[in-house]
Amino acid sequence: MRKQSDNGAAQVFRITGARQGLAEDVRGRQRRYVISMAIRTLAVILTAVLWNVERHVAIVTLVLGAFLPYVAVVIANAGRENAPGLPSTFVPAPSRPMISPAPTASPAESVPEDRS
């Protein structure tokens, strides 16, 4: 939506409360997963290199390399963010009133009348 300002230039408004697009969200989660897996790969390589040189640092990198896949999967599967402007509760649709069944006729009323 554009609005003309006093000097005649068009002013553009942004939608700040809207969610990210689904493709953009998936791309961001994939990027975070690849970054954390690259860090894990680096930690495993450092573990192998430092094992005989600095054992304490190698153990820390080994623990980091073992723990990062779990964290990466949890972050990747976290799902979409909540939009701040949208309601968070579900409002059920109003229910329609039920039509009551027709009253049953007594046997005396159900006999057809003679119209002669």
Rank of each mutant, 00 (worst) to 15 (best):
L64T: 14
I75W: 02
N52S: 15
V44R: 13
A72F: 06
N52I: 03
S100D: 09
I15M: 14
F90W: 07
M37R: 01
Q4Y: 12
A83S: 05
F13G: 12
P103V: 14
Q4N: 14
E81M: 05
F90A: 08
G85L: 00
Q11R: 11
P107K: 05
L22G: 08
F67V: 10
T47I: 10
E24L: 00
I75D: 14
Y70H: 04
L46T: 08
P84F: 09
A58S: 14
V63T: 14
E81K: 07
P97S: 12
I39V: 10
L50W: 03
V111D: 02
G21S: 13
A48E: 15
A58L: 11
S95F: 09
L86S: 11
R80Y: 09
Q11E: 14
G17K: 02
Y33A: 04
I59C: 09
G17S: 08
S5C: 02
Y70F: 07
A78G: 15
V60Q: 15
T104I: 01
V49G: 10
T89R: 05
N77Y: 06
V111Q: 00
V12Y: 15
V53T: 10
M98T: 15
R96F: 09
N77H: 03
E24K: 05
Q30I: 01
I35C: 03
R115L: 14
T41Q: 11
S36P: 05
V73H: 00
A18G: 04
Q20G: 05
D6P: 10
S5K: 02
D114R: 01
